[in-house]
Design a protein around this nucleic acid. Structure first.
Lengths: 215, 215
DNA sequence: CCTACCGATCGGTAGG
DNA sequence: CCTACCGATCGGTAGG
């Protein structure tokens, strides 16, 4: 692996990016991770079809063919982005529920909602939004993989909603409630602006006030 | 305009489509309308980027260059699809509210929700879903046009939600409530299956039960 | 991970 | 609205 001179047209991009190879960092899975992050950001901003593998390569200072050394196809890269997003979301969800008693479904739902907003709207969290809005670009096999992860994620909501339904805090059918509530949250990707408007906490409060009955 | 023989590879498509030119129908704005409908259906099913102008042409029995006789660019066709969708949605909304007293905000919101579902999920109503999910593919000028129509559409919800807030049926802030409720409805495009599950009326009931407090 | 390249597709156009 | 076509871009690959 020689210290090849990088092409001049990539310099400016590199300049405001991270340094490369200057410190003797091992680029083991590092370059792969950089590709994933750049792809997530570009897929979210411009869409999967409107993002070329060349764009992604340039964003991490690679040449056009090099992403295919790490991923066997553009599809596979998209799928990897989504998987990483869902795994992080599932981990965040499990963590936020840890130590909350089943007897406190109101606290559970609040934490689920807050964690979901963090997953969708937190800084640098582009992976799950890509999953939500580029689902169509996967093939059947990839969809099955993601559907399983999504089912895992949503499964955590059902017992909480059932408890809320039993206690009278929720009147609508549980299954439709889950679909409608998650829809309301997912749609926030379209309108939420981190730089103005409500904070994620205020958003969470609004969701609680909107969906749950006092009793 | 001679009776040109149609290329053989298009015959099967034509055979199970509508007849053409057999009856002496004037093709005035008719062909244009066919292009709009076909484009809406294909954009919704496969996405804007994944649909070629050749696909759209073939769907109405035209040749590859012919859509550009009716629309000056693929963008313009997309924009026209969205405009048609929003105009129909605004008209449906105005019609469903006609004759309902302002003193009955519960009946108003029920009708708004039901009409919105019809616009999103009714058979053949592909225009607004395209508007919701292909917004990114418009240029700035086109976005402004659509944003104005969308503002018109959403404006009808605000006084109703304010009345519901005043009467205690709605606890969350009106602006966030509107965003969250419309999000919940818009997301139904992702999961609703006309052939199974709830009907639009049952969906509407669930929305009412989920978002509104009795008092 | 770079170099050099290929085959395919696509939006769009001139000219009728 | 068809015919014939162009320039550009894109995913992907061989070979190092």
């Amino acid at each position: 692996m020689s210290a090849s001179v990088s092409p001049s047209h990539l310099e400016p991009k590199r300049a405001r990016g991270r340094p490369r190879k200057t410190e003797d960092e091992r680029d083991d899975g590092n370059r792969r991770q950089q590709l994933l992050s750049a792809a997530a950001r570009l897929f979210r901003r411009n869409g999967f079809d409107a993002t070329s593998t060349r764009d992604i390569a340039a964003a991490v200072g690679m040449h056009s063919g090099s992403p295919f050394y790490h991923f066997k196809s553009k599809d596979a890269l998209l799928c990897a982005v989504m998987q990483e997003g869902m795994q992080a979301a599932i981990a965040r969800q499990a963590k936020t529920l840890r130590g909350v008693a089943v007897t406190e479904p109101l606290e559970q739902i609040r934490r689920l909602v807050r964690a979901h907003f963090e997953t969708l709207l937190g800084p640098g969290n582009d992976f799950v939004p890509v999953m939500l809005y580029e689902h169509r670009s996967l093939n059947a096999r990839q969809r099955a993989v993601l559907a399983a992860l999504q089912a895992d994620y949503e499964a955590a909501w059902t017992p909480v909603l059932e408890a809320l339904h039993a206690s009278g805090h929720l009147r609508a059918p549980v299954k439709l409630s889950r679909l409608l509530i998650l829809g309301a949250l997912n749609w926030s990707v379209q309108w939420f602006d981190r730089k103005k408007g409500a904070s994620l906490d205020e958003l969470t409060d609004a969701v609680m006030a909107l969906f749950l009955k006092e009793c």
